[in-house]
Design a protein around this nucleic acid. Structure first.
Lengths: 224, 224
DNA sequence: CGCAACCTACCGAACAGTAGGTATATAAAC
DNA sequence: GTTTATATACCTACTGTTCGGTAGGTTGCG
């Protein structure tokens, strides 16, 4: 009860996932819709552990121990381990989607918008390293089958949003004509690579000005 | 005995992993060092299942059932589930490294060498989809701790090889001056993105001329 | 040849431990 | 007294692993 929701909240970063945000379909707790600290602890520790060892690598015993509770308490808040997992995934993806939409709709030159898109990715990954790690582990083991969420469609939509921005750039003459989808894949891939590097060693990637550098290099090209 | 080592061997692709290649330290079977078909089946099915469900998602029972044997037989060929897993990873990474080294050492213009590097990645991923999937699942859950192999160092070395090629390009005036490491990250990220897309839906990525298109787009840049 | 000794390659059954999940009790709050 | 939130103790199913055994082949030797 004394220490509640720190540890994810980083310093200069305000886009972390707060469990108290708009929830996706789960039984509401109590008449006043405050979220119990215990439930938050469960989500936080489960996220951390799932990210570290994958779904099958973590037992509910481990989760409840980390959260300082017992198993029935976890099952009081979540119907199953699987749905706890699903909840975390859906919450993470939902939060990121909203951040990305904001970046895509941002005003400014094409370059600035691309920088904003890049920055949103990097910031989100930095502030929600565990969630980010978790989503990746879902993507690459086919535990995707486990989670009741069309991940392919989700990422296709994200790519489509970026491709649309690039297509606008072609219309305005900022981007040379070509296949917006292919270009979006390239842009997404580059961003992704730095996220991966950050996940494996946060200190190895200096966030300072990275988005600008990446976008400028991509626009100019590597050729002399 | 009748059907032995197909199913990985694709048509126009000759860079699949053959279990009969130079083995890494395990007891040699028999005086003639032929590799028993049973052992190959174990490795093949284990690779497929691990790729599909992750290390912890697959039981030894599942593997032996898929391979058409019993558990003691698996333990006859491999000392543990963990070391079977490790063997597959090490074999995969070793084989890819050798392919990549060949591409890096290839002759030709800088553009052609980059295309070759890109092509090696894409071909390897296409011909060894299971192995590729598996390595990724190791990368993103921290089952990396499980495997007795410094994955960070491995990929750092791969990136260094690509960065060196780019640095040579700077010296010869083909690449504009800049940070070779950052450029290698960008190049690697783009390649990676297409590999991911292939892994999730092999049909969605047309391999035909992709390497050329990617390299040319990267060299020229997306800007008008 | 006959036969014992040994080997590789495999199997059925069982082990101790842990998995996810729950029936039931209890303690406090309304 | 009902509801909310927690705990103890237990269930069944499954985990990785091992034990003891054996079919079938090869070798050595008289």
């Amino acid at each position: 009860m004394e220490e509640v929701n720190d540890k994810v909240t980083h310093n200069q970063c305000s886009m972390h996932i707060n469990e108290s945000g708009a929830q996706l379909t789960h039984e509401q707790i109590g008449p006043a819709d405050a979220i119990p600290a215990v439930r938050q602890r469960i989500v936080r520790e489960a996220t951390r552990l799932f990210a570290l060892k994958g779904y099958n690598g973590v037992s509910v015993r481990e989760i409840v121990e980390a959260a300082g509770i017992t198993r029935p308490t976890l099952y009081y808040y979540f119907p199953s381990k699987e749905q706890l997992f699903e909840h975390i995934i859906a919450e993470t993806l939902g939060e990121f989607r909203s951040q990305l939409e904001q970046a895509v709709r941002s005003q400014g030159s094409l370059r600035e918008r691309l920088i904003q898109i890049c920055r949103v990715h990097l910031d989100f990954a930095r502030c929600n390293a565990d969630n980010c790690h978790l989503v990746h582990s879902v993507l690459f083991t086919n535990e995707s089958k486990r989670v009741n969420f069309d991940l392919d469609e989700y990422f296709r939509q994200n790519m489509r949003m970026i491709a649309d921005v690039l297509a606008e750039g072609m219309a305005s003459g900022d981007i040379r004509s070509g296949d917006p989808w292919l270009m979006a894949m390239m842009f997404g891939g580059i961003i992704h690579m730095f996220i991966m590097a950050m996940m494996r060693d946060p200190a190895a990637v200096s966030q300072e000005g990275l988005a600008e550098i990446v976008v400028d290099n991509l626009l100019r090209g590597l050729g002399a």
